[in-house]
Every structure is written in C-alpha cells, then in structure tokens.
Amino acid sequence: MTTIFGIPLAAFLGQLLIGLINGSFYAMLSLGLAVIFGLLRVINFAHGAQYMLGAFVALLLLQYLGVDYWLALAIAPLVVGLFGALVERTMLSRLYDLDPLYGLLFTFGLALTIEGTFRYLYGAAGQPYSVPPALSGGTNLGFMFLPNYRGWVVAVSLVTCLGTWLLIEKTKLGAYLRAATENTVLVQAFGINVPLLLTLTYGFGAALAAFAGVLAAPIYQVSPLMGTNLIIVVFAVVVVGGMGSILGAIVTGYMLGIAEGLTKVFYPEASNIVIFVIMAIVLLLRPAGLFGKDA
C-alpha cells in the first residue's frame, strides 16, 4: 500500500478532502463576514445562526412541502436573506453610529434568540438530510474514492467564492460597495442610496451563510447548534486572514480547513484547536493578519 509519511495514502487523502470540505465552509462564511464588516462595520455574530437557518429551512421545506434539495438551494438563501434584510432595516441600522462592539453584542443576542427558538421547537438533536439522488454514490479516482456530493460541495463553494469576488471587484454594484466602504458620506452625496446598499449587503451576507447551510445539510446533521461552534472557528479564521481583503478571507478559509484536516492525520488530539493555535502564532508574528490592511 502506498504511504505518505508513514500514513496510508488513502487515509491521508481522505482527511485532506475533509479538510477541503471544512475549508469550503470556512471560506464561504468568512467571506460573508468580511463583506458585511467591510461596509457595515459590524461583526455578524448571527452568521452561524443564519447558516443554521439555511439548513433548517431546507429540512423543513422537505418535510412539510416536499421541496427537494435543488429548489431549497435557491429558496432557503432567499428566505434567510430577506429575514436578514428585515433585521438590518428595523434594528441593526440603529447601531451604525455607535461603537462597533454594540453591533457584535446585538448580533450575539440575535444568534441566541434564533438558536434558542429552534432548540425549543425542534430539540437539540441533529436530524439527517439525505444527499440528493443525482449526487449520491461516488467516483473512483484511482488513488481514492470521492463521494460525489463532497466533490460537488468543493466545486460549488469555489464557484460561489469566485462569483462573489467578481461581483465585488468587477461590477457596478461592487464599485458602489467598495466606494461606500471607503467613504459612505460622499457616495451618498453622489446620489447613491447607501442605506439601501447596507440592507442589501447584510441580506446578501445572510443569504450566503444560508446557502452554505443548505450545502452543509447532507454532510453534517441539521441541528440548532450547528452554526455557533462553527462561527467561533470562523472568527479565528477572520483574525488570521484580516478582514481588509475579500480574497484574503477566501484563501485563509481554505488554507485553515486543509491545515485542520492534516492535523487530524498527524496529531488527532489537536485537530479541533489547531486553528486557534495558528491564530495565536499569527497574532505574534503579524498582528494585523496575513492579508490585513487595518492595524
């Protein structure tokens, strides 16, 4: 059997794939956090809850209306995005003139409320969501067996990240967003409806989290707490990457997911803390983060 550093190749590649999958979620979530933070100056603690909402909406759509995975992939982000926009319009928008810490505290309260509600209604236990038939089974790549759904998740997350990056860097809407991130008042004086832009941005970020949640549903179990522990890791990812750059958030997400996967191969005991350790090291060597522009 082929081995690498004394580890069977198949096991090694298997963990690498798991790392890549986790990295896909880290990347999508930290991307959303960075987009929201860039314009709103709010750290969206509810990002994990919105991710969970995405998965739950997909599950409930299936259970009650028989809506399949593919349609849920479109509907769930829309529902959660609208919910996010509503929250921004009615509550979050009142906090922009205050210390950004209040935004963090508010979204923390929001996350607790959402998670508490779902725990109350559906219990804490995880519920399975099956892989859509079209993507069940796997492909033998010769050197390893790749479950089709996992391949799909990696591909879709790459496309999503790239698409979001293009949207921000190459379109008119993205130019508004970038300009407003730099100087909100002037952009508004030019006749651009910045309050609307803020609502759309938060809604988009929430929708992105929900999209990731639907993608995650068949891999992890759907449970009210699936988002919170994840969001803390994503915060560490964001500290490592620095929130100054969209591309930085994406790259750091994948990198740390892979680093975590590899740790599982070589030193499993440390696998759930490795990202925090990396964060500490980065703080020592480069406090502003790997891609950070802000001090």
Partner: peptide, 20 residues
Amino acid sequence: DFPVTIVTGVVFMACVLLFR
C-alpha cells in the same frame, strides 16, 4: 419549559437597542 436562551437573547437585543 421555556428556554432561557431565548429570553437571554431577547434581553440582549433590547439592552443594545433601548438602554445601552
């Protein structure tokens, strides 16, 4: 049987919005 988390979350939001 009403969960504490919901109350905590709502009080949190109310504090931040209404009486900081």
